[in-house]
């Protein structure tokens, strides 16, 4: 736990610092030279980070590994692609449809997996992803194995004018806004009633029940709200790439989601964003070639899970605790007598 649970009012200073950091973050592409690679890399990082937050919510607050979030990711991509190509509707419409459909799909999958835990939960969600992949791959109405091409630029009418996201430079503000929205949502969720009860269920299901928490309802609710996060990332990804195909179900995205969340540590607000950034930067700018990248990614994932299951932040925390304990035992502390305890 890095943040404490009860609501802490944001101090003025903190608000100013956060606002300043957000401002700087927005101009990151320019700070890195303003090239199209800078824009596309940062847009991709923002986009994939949003994708990862859906998985993060489920993993960090239910303690379950969802292998089915590629379904929601693909729902976003397919809805944006098919509706904008065949119906010619704007981005708001496709976004709303994305949210609606992903919530419906998550409700269904959530109800199916309501009684499952851990390994079985992962397996069932994975099965859902496999089945959906097969459907997308073989159903010509959604593009079949070739997918859908010719997705137009993202159009977002804002009353008096329409924002058009065609180039990477134009898509960056949208990706950035989506990321901010997601961070805000997840931060609120962490402090919400649902967030805290989910954490109770995760930490001690029996105890949560004894306090009146309906485990199943909480699990279903968390799973359902995680879906549109990942789905909206898929929605924007469709416009960025202008092509959507069954590759959205590929392990590439699944591994990215899980690694990015686990790498830095669970239940850390910026964890998935940092994890995604590290992975994308390694792949795009410090690449050692496809085979080596996969070896390294697999090795890092395995090493983190085996040695520091709490992620890199967990490692830092561990070191700090050890240091603290050392300094503490050197000083006074820490023997309690029974007397003291009864007062």
């Amino acid at each position: 736990m890095t943040d404490s649970l009860p609501h802490r009012p944001l101090s003025m200073l903190r608000a100013v610092v956060v606002a300043a950091l957000i401002g700087v973050a927005f101009f990151l592409p320019q700070l890195f030279g303003g090239s199209s690679v800078a824009y596309s890399t940062l847009t991709t990082i923002a986009l994939f980070a949003v994708m990862c937050y859906g998985v993060d919510v489920v993993l960090s607050y239910l303690g379950e590994v969802s292998l089915g979030h590629t379904v929601f990711w693909a729902i976003g991509g397919y809805v944006a692609a098919l509706m904008s190509v065949h119906l010619g509707v704007n981005g708001w419409v496709t976004a709303l449809a994305t949210i609606g459909l992903s919530v419906a799909a998550a409700t269904f999958l959530g109800l199916v997996t309501l009684r499952t835990r851990e390994f079985v939960f992962s397996l069932v969600t994975y099965a859902a992803a496999v089945v959906t992949h097969e459907i997308a791959f073989n159903w010509d109405a959604v593009g079949g194995s070739d997918g859908t091409v010719g997705i137009p630029a993202l159009k977002l009418p804002l009353g008096f004018f329409t924002y058009v996201g065609g180039t990477q430079e134009e898509l960056w503000p949208i990706a950035f806004a989506l990321l901010l929205l997601t961070l805000f949502f997840v931060a609120r969720f962490r402090r919400s009633r649902l967030g805290t009860t989910a954490l109770m269920v995760h930490m001690n299901p029996a105890l949560a029940t004894s306090l009146g928490v309906d485990q199943r309802r909480v699990r279903l609710a968390v799973f359902v709200i995680s879906a549109p996060i990942t789905a909206l990332a898929g929605w924007l990804y469709a416009y960025q790439r202008a092509y959507v195909g069954p590759d959205m179900f590929e392990a590439y995205f699944l591994v990215m989601m899980l690694t990015a969340v686990v790498l830095v540590g669970r239940r850390i607000l910026l964890g998935p964003l940092l994890g995604t950034a590290v992975l994308i930067i390694q792949q795009n700018l410090l690449s050692l070639g496809g085979d080596w990248n996969k070896v390294i990614l697999g090795f890092v994932l395995a090493a983190v899970l085996i040695f520091w299951p709490a992620g890199l932040m967990g490692l830092v925390d561990h070191m700090r605790q050890r240091w603290l304990r050392k300094t503490r035992t050197n000083g006074r502390e820490n023997k309690r007598s029974y007397m003291e305890e009864v007062q």
């Binding site: 736990m1 404490s4 001690n204 105890l207 029940t209 004894s210 306090l211 009146g212």
Partner: peptide, 26 residues
């Protein structure tokens, strides 16, 4: 069980009856 708790039948279970990762305040 959760509904009985909501109705005011509160059980303090034996063992593991606190959230060890959280502070007293939390």
């Amino acid at each position: 069980a959760h509904a009985r708790a909501q109705h005011g039948l509160l059980l303090v279970p034996e063992g593991k009856n606190i959230f060890a990762e959280l502070t007293v305040d939390e």
